[in-house]
């Protein structure tokens, strides 16, 4: 057979999240230490396609990328048509914990980007002993946009006379590093164009409002129990290197590195460049030889 078939397997799992049944899609590849990967707002697990397909990583890690409910191939819960989707801190944390428990993952590593980069901070704070380590990509304590008032007033990401997918993709394009391979840049944007109506906007509630960590709570993060690694692309102006540096300042023991040439979607916009930063972190966590990277 000459077909080029990836080793990635996609399956569905039933999860109860905050008392509601959800059908959640996830992809996985590899064996070893579980590595849960959290996608950015308005996108889905395909952002981690290059990690799932890296034999050097999957030799030592069981890489798992699930689509948040309402995203990708995960369904919204029954009754969704009568509500406005809104992601909260509690819901996000409950979703990740439900996924890890359902799959009986033994102290997984959790890695997330953007909203996922925020979520790993909340997870490490609330459930440190459940995780072997946390890797925050584009982590920040908060985020703001100078166009926030216009976004709120016009709701331009979700209104009947605007294509929300294209509006969402165009809103994030500038967060990608200018040297990203063209194919990976537009693959990343395609995921945004495919987002369900109002989903990106609903995620941004967590990103801009509910997940705001400028309340001092971050000081309680225990990196002895759950080591924290922070990797941030230098071209990101939404969760900038300066903002991640502030996280590192407030969390004793956190390890922070700026990623040259990369923007807000490192694993998806420029996977090969990203992996040069990720692999040494995975080696330190365990399961990979540094010399092999």
């Amino acid at each position: 057979m000459s077909a080029k078939i990836e080793a990635v397997i996609g399956r569905y799992v039933s999860l109860s999240i905050e008392g509601r049944d959800h059908r959640v899609y996830f992809e996985e590849a590899g064996e070893g230490i579980p590595l849960i990967c959290l996608h950015t707002a308005g996108a889905d697990g395909r952002q981690y396609r290059a990690i799932l397909n890296d034999a050097e990583i999957t030799k030592h890690f069981r890489v798992l990328a699930f689509d948040l409910p309402w995203h990708g191939k995960s369904s919204p819960p029954a009754g969704w048509q009568d509500e406005v989707y809104t992601l909260t801190t509690d819901k996000y944390v409950a979703t990740v914990m439900a996924f890890a428990e359902a799959l009986e993952l033994d102290r997984p590593v959790v890695m997330g980007c953007s909203i996922g980069g925020r979520a790993v901070l909340h997870l490490a704070l609330r459930h440190a002993s459940s995780f072997r380590a946390a890797i925050g990509l584009q982590s920040a304590l908060f985020s703001e946009s100078s166009l926030g008032p216009e976004m709120a007033e016009t709701e331009y990401l979700h209104r009947p006379d605007v294509h929300g997918g294209e509006a969402s993709a165009s809103a994030v394009e500038g967060l990608i590093g200018p040297g990203a391979p063209v194919a990976d840049r537009w693959e990343t944007l395609w995921h945004y164009m495919q987002g369900g109506p109002g989903v990106f906007a609903g995620d941004l509630y967590y990103y801009f409002v509910d997940g705001d960590m400028r309340n001092g709570v971050i000081a309680g993060l225990d990196t002895d129990t759950c080591p924290l690694y922070l990797l941030t692309g230098e071209y990101d102006f939404s969760a900038s290197p300066e903002m991640t540096a502030e996280v590192a300042r407030q969390v004793p023991g956190a390890k922070f590195q700026i990623m040259s040439g990369l923007g807000h979607f490192p694993m998806s916009e420029n996977p090969e460049q990203f992996k040069t930063y990720l692999k040494p972190v995975l080696a330190e966590i365990g399961g990979m030889q540094k010399a092999a990277s």
Binding site: S145, S146, A171, G174, L175, P178, E234, F237
Partner: peptide, 14 residues
């Protein structure tokens, strides 16, 4: 390959 902050209209604005 502009410097960070100059690489896109929205980056220039922010």
């Amino acid at each position: 390959l502009p410097k960070p902050g100059f690489h896109h209209l929205m980056a220039m604005n922010e």
